[in-house]
Nucleic acid binder design. Sequence first.
DNA 1: TTGACAGTTGAATAGTTGTTCAACTATAAT
DNA 2: ATTATAGTTGAACAACTATTCAACTGTCAA
Lengths: 131, 131
Amino acid sequence: MQYFTFCYNSLTYEQLFNYNKAMDNIDLETVNRVKPKMPDTTLLYELSDFFKLMGDSTRIQLLWALEENEMCVGELALLLNMTKSAVSHQLKTLRSAKLVKAQKRGKNVFYALSDHHVRTVLEMALEHVCE
Amino acid sequence: MQYFTFCYNSLTYEQLFNYNKAMDNIDLETVNRVKPKMPDTTLLYELSDFFKLMGDSTRIQLLWALEENEMCVGELALLLNMTKSAVSHQLKTLRSAKLVKAQKRGKNVFYALSDHHVRTVLEMALEHVCE
DNA sequence: TTGACAGTTGAATAGTTGTTCAACTATAAT
DNA sequence: ATTATAGTTGAACAACTATTCAACTGTCAA
């Protein structure tokens, strides 16, 4: 037996919106009440970018370690048992997000947390994860 | 001019560790002090998985919306201006992480937050993002 | 019982991302 | 000056992920 169902293939955003809106079982009032409370695009992407940044075990370890002490790339590589290259790449990511700052001293580059908000967020997440 | 530098090609973990450890300018004391304070593997992955989950703008919107009201898939699709299929896929992800719960009523499936910790974490992140 | 609607699902696709690799720069020591 | 060490970088690769697409199930109404 063959079914023919509606496909959204190549609908414009407006067409999709009208299609969604035209459904029977929808409480438009709820949707209209919630809509203005939704975060605007900029905030939304700032939020998800921040979480994306925290969503990598290497970067979490780096932040976690730097919370204890500033360290140079080689020390961090030893601590995490990774190549300096991999560590350096991730530190660059954290740095461009302004979560860590770098300072060159002699042959070494020392990294430190630049934002102690990070600790709070980590602790909140910990609380969540640990039930 | 040509340089010949060390390459880590196909080092075992142990070899990498020993190579890192053998560096001159490393404060082994710091590394040894911090090492026991690092999170264990399980916790580490639970943490990064949680942040990964929050690191998507669609899922943030879904959680944000459900914080206001439980809603069915069609309502959420209308609110976010997305196809029901895309919304359903993301709700499934959130559901298997136990962040939302589903309840079928008639033709509709209503989703609601199952963990109000989420709000706290979102608020923390908001605080961070908004400087 | 037929048709329409609500939602789900698996495969496919397009885009993103973390690590490796090799080559590089900069600094310190001999 | 030469050499070894510390770190950075861009390209390449592999793994992952969000959305689309098409086909499906379950429920209600006529």
